[in-house]
Write a protein that binds this DNA or RNA. Structure first.
Lengths: 233, 233
DNA sequence: GTATAACTAGTTGTATGACAACATATGTGT
DNA sequence: ACACATATGTTGTCATACAACTAGTTATAC
């Protein structure tokens, strides 16, 4: 059991914890209305200020939502596992996960580049160019190169102007980094790789969708062949 | 950056946004001390109650931390990219975001279904079937139906055995839910929709990749046509 | 009778003032 | 030099009042 050091006098957190527990054990079920702030003051015997702070914390964390004049309600489709277990960053990819990432890129990044070539504006292109330049000057430091590589692909996703793809890429940023690091470490920083990035950048800049897709396609195929070759050994 | 005095409602969020901007553009740099609550009341010309709410929201989201008797400080090692994208619970999709989700599904879910048809095992198929059954009995309650609908697609992603896709779908679960809810609310729970889900389930069960892809493709096209029709009105 | 407007009770949002609890710096006496 | 008290500034909590909003009820006009 955890060390439940009852903090000296943090009333708000105490109320927050009790309310959270009531939600987690379904005493206050999903979608149902919470007691009014006045009722909560009587329930916990604290001031409305403190009750409001606890309620606000639940709201800030997306656990409840509030409607002016109506009350607060437990959020629907609440992911109770995630509230307790914060997802810990991944520091290493297994071989399976590496291949999963390969498939993910073939699927998502393909579409990202297609959209980017259609929609990229000046700022987007500048961001991609900046990352590309950092790749070029970091050819001898594969960690710096990997970081620039990652930034390049994130900039491309941003240029797609699709919020879902942008969010996704940010969410898997750490995994993506270790994937790229592995790729650059094992295969080395090849001229083909750099050339492919330049081609992708140029075709996005020229809004040339077909060339952009072809460039990624050939780059991916080169990688896959090289990896298959390594696996055989 | 200038400070705008707040005039109308949503005072707390307005203050919160301005404070957040000051942190994001490094006017208040990492680790530095924020103005005291009293100074903030004069700066924004609002009550201490509102200032405290805004400060608490920043604290709840981990952007700042507070020490009793000392003040509040900007958190160190902030991932500024993630603050805007991740920390705000999403309760509604704009029309743009809705279309973004449409493209996302065409891209990712297509691949998920393809992989699922290749790799699904007994447990995966049972999970998909369970969600499908819940859809069938919830035809008259579009909220329950939507939840089952979401579970169906999550189960399909799980059946793909691709950890990246599984994680992604988990990460955008809430957005996906509101997307589906909107879809089911606007278009209604059509026989075509239910039929498409059954076909997808059957073809995954039979490991029939081509039929699975065709089923999703036609379902998506039906949706797009219906939506375009609505937009014209 | 029906639709519209006004009212009412309940709830959350904001403002103000007061005091408690905590942290740091300054001064004082020994 | 040291211990202690004090002053000042900060966040935490409380109490009260009123504004703004919502849903439901009642009154009014037609």
């Amino acid at each position: 059991m955890t060390i439940q050091t009852i903090t000296k006098s943090n009333i708000v957190d105490a109320v927050y914890q009790q309310m959270l527990n009531k939600i987690l054990d379904n005493s206050w079920s999903s979608g149902s209305k919470l007691p009014s702030e006045f009722e909560l003051t009587e329930l916990f015997n604290v001031s409305r200020t403190s009750v409001r702070s606890a309620v606000q914390k639940l709201r800030d964390l997306g656990i409840i939502y509030t409607r002016h004049g109506m009350g607060s309600f437990v959020s629907e489709n609440l992911d109770k596992d995630k509230i307790l277990n914060k997802n810990q960053p991944i520091m290493h990819l297994s071989q399976d996960e590496f291949m999963d990432m390969m498939i993910f890129r073939q699927t998502v990044e393909f579409k990202c580049i297609e959209l980017a070539a259609e929609r990229a504006n000046e700022q987007d292109i500048e961001a991609i160019e900046e990352a590309l330049n950092r790749m070029l000057v970091s050819k001898n430091d594969y960690k710096k190169y990997t970081q620039a590589d990652l930034d390049f692909h994130i900039a491309v996703a941003a240029a797609s102007h699709n919020k879902i793809f942008i969010k996704i890429l940010h969410d898997i940023k750490d995994m993506y980094y270790f994937y790229l690091e592995e790729l650059n470490r094992v295969l080395g920083i090849t001229l083909e790789s750099i050339d492919a990035h330049i081609k992708i950048y140029m075709s996005i800049k020229d809004h040339d969708v077909e060339t952009a897709k072809r460039s990624l396609d050939s780059a991916m195929k080169t990688n896959i062949i090289a990896i298959e070759k390594l696996k055989d050994e």
